[in-house]
Nucleic acid binder design. Structure first.
Length: 479
RNA sequence: CGGGGUGUGGCGAAGUUUGGUAUCGCGCUUGGUUCGGGUCCAAGAGGCCUCGGGUUCGAAUCCCGACACUCCGACCA
């Protein structure tokens, strides 16, 4: 069929070449455009709208929890960056440094922020003096720069937009609570807004954030069974505070170092949405974050009253709080149907002369392709319930895939075999030794994704060295 | 940063082996037609063939170099 042919040429089938499929979707759905600087991408209106919705949703949530937004400088003096040894080691190699036209060559070098811990520390060293100043719960929505060697749309930008939360507390308990709380906020975003099931866990020392004492993560399985880290939350202890000389006077008039956290999500989540939900026809947007939840398409618009009646439906949808738009262009119906499938709009509301006679409209859902003929008076309620249903269905499908592709194994040979045959996440016992972790990478080609919060609690043998231990660790191939 | 692939109107390609002044489809513009799954017809616009050197009477085509994109590794949200 001509229709199939065109779709194939538009988007590479997902199972044929996942990477190419991803690139096709990103470009064809007009989420991104390549810029003239390698690794720097243009977020087009539709792509940015997704990020805006994530921002709005999260920003409100952070504020509810008492966080305040701030804006830190973009440049970091080299001396600041050098203060925390592990942190520098992690980030210095990918820092970009600025030089100015007529500047004094002896002037201190300035890095473009790869992340802003050092800036917050510098600020707090000056402004935090008493227990009464704590906690500070800050957040900023900014872009950061990391000179990555290879880049991919959404998954690895040299400049990417994110949100970085930074908090400072009087006690380790309070800071740890913040770290755990924010991970759960992210998990809620993923599961209840993006329909992406996640595995909550803790990073190993090898994989944790440079300078952190502990890193929590959400690992999400993409359609190709690879893992995408979809949110992280770090507990710093008072390591940074010591290096940056941040102290406060406690209630007993003693000097103490405070405890810090940081946490972040980025536009990478959009890559996750695409790779978890997308199909051969393009993007499938989770309804709660979709920039457009329903598009109204007048069918045979030249016929008496169709356009007016369609506009009325649009107005009703908007009034009901559904993000909707109408397509009144003279493109054919088939073109429109295919176009909005590519863009992943959750619902398509069709209204034609035949519908008008019967007092109904046709609603098609993106996730399953099912069509419903709905009495016009039920439009709002049906759309609202369908959007919820779509969310639930998308989540369930992704959760099923996660479950079906998560395996338990005894030895590294088993892991290797599973990865060879099927791919996915594999959980084994691990003794905690970093050498074993590195060996697993060499022998089975997987890295540790996390030590899941959900532990079996059984005793077993480390999959690499065979030592008796109880810790479950999850392995996978990461993006 | 190592290994492969690619670079030709907005997009996708042919042409490159065997040098001779650029072709096709989609899209775009205009007019008509059609409209319940990528309508059809007609007329148009749009390209220093990624960039820089070289060879040649003549280069998209041959040679050297650079850059970009892309895939696979290593590194990272």
């Amino acid at each position: 069929m001509a229709q199939d042919k065109k779709q194939v040429t538009a988007i590479t089938p997902r199972d044929k070449d996942f990477a190419q499929w991803f690139t096709d979707v990103v470009v064809k759905a007009e989420l991104i455009d390549y810029s003239s600087v390698k690794g720097m991408f243009i977020l087009r209106p539709y792509g940015y709208a997704i990020w805006e919705n994530i921002m709005h949703q999260q920003d409100a949530r952070y504020k509810e929890l008492g966080h305040e937004n701030v804006a830190m400088p973009m440049l970091i003096p080299e001396s600041l960056l050098l203060k925390e040894a592990e942190h520098v080691a992690g980030f210095a190699p990918e820092c970009a440094w600025v030089t100015f036209g007529g500047s004094d060559p002896l002037e201190e070098r300035l890095a473009i922020r790869p992340t802003s811990e050092t800036l917050f520390c510098d600020h707090w060293a000056r402004t935090v003096t008493s227990w009464r100043d704590l906690p500070k719960l800050y957040n900023q929505w900014v872009s950061v720069l990391r000179w990555e060697k290879t880049s991919r749309p959404f998954l690895r930008h040299r400049e990417f937009y994110w949100q970085e939360g930074h908090t400072i507390h009087a006690t380790p308990e309070e800071a740890m609570h913040e770290t755990e709380q924010m991970l759960e906020v992210y998990a809620d975003l993923c599961e209840n807004w993006l329909a992406m099931p996640v595995v909550r866990g803790r990073k190993t020392d090898k994989e944790k954030f440079a300078g952190a004492e502990r890193t929590y993560t959400l690992e999400c399985m993409m359609h190709d069974k690879k893992a995408l880290q979809s949110g992280t939350s770090h507990y710093f202890g008072n390591g940074f505070a010591k290096q940056f000389d941040i102290t406060f006077t406690n209630k007993n008039n003693e000097q103490e170092h405070p405890y810090q956290t940081s946490w972040g999500i980025s536009t990478r989540l959009i890559g996750g949405i695409i790779m978890v939900h997308g199909d051969d026809n393009g993007l499938v947007m989770p309804p709660r974050i979709a920039p457009v939840q329903a598009v109204v398409i007048p069918v045979a618009a030249h016929k008496e009253g169709v356009t007016e009646a369609s506009r009325e439906l649009l107005a009703r949808l908007k009034k009901a709080g559904i993000r909707a738009k109408i397509d009144e262009t003279d493109n054919s119906f088939g073109w429109k149907a295919a176009q909005y499938e590519m863009l992943g709009y959750p619902l398509r509301v069709e209204l034609g002369p035949k519908d008008m006679e019967k007092g109904q409209c046709c609603i098609a859902r993106r996730d399953t392709g099912e069509k419903y003929f709905v009495a016009l008076e039920d439009l709002e309620s049906k759309c609202a319930s369908l959007l919820d249903e779509i969310h639930d269905n998308m989540y369930a499908a992704a959760a099923k895939r996660l479950e079906e592709n998560t395996f338990y194994a005894e030895t590294w040979q088993d892991v290797d075999e599973i990865m060879e045959e099927k791919g996915g996440f594999v959980i084994t016992k691990w003794c905690g030794d970093q050498d074993c972790e590195l060996d697993m990478k060499d022998m089975a080609g997987v890295s540790s994704r996390c030590i899941p919060f959900k532990q079996r609690g059984t005793e077993g043998k480390c999959a690499i060295c065979g030592k008796t231990c109880t810790t479950d660790i999850m392995w996978g191939v990461a993006y």
